[in-house]
Amino acid sequence: MATKFNLNRQPVSDDEINTHKDFDKLVKKFKEQSIEKARSDVNFLKNKKITYSTIIAGATIFCTVTYFTVFKNQ
């Protein structure tokens, strides 16, 4: 990574820093992000591929466990 060196740069004034400070905006963004995340989580669960894959995986595990249980008993 290339590096640049600045000497004696002017500091940013407190007033300028305070003009960018906006807690309400932060909370608003956070809430929007949370809603977006909740939506994508719901979409993920509603996804057909995920549902079918889970069912197939579950059935495979069930069959394997059943098979070995029966096989062991014999």
């Binding site: 990574m1 590096t3 640049k4 060196f5 600045n6």
Partner: peptide, 18 residues
């Protein structure tokens, strides 16, 4: 940010620091 935007890593210092 540096990795994604290929921006320059900057070091800021005063002469007194050096």
């Amino acid at each position: 940010m540096f990795r994604n935007n290929a921006k320059l890593r900057t070091v800021n210092a005063d002469v007194s620091d050096l």
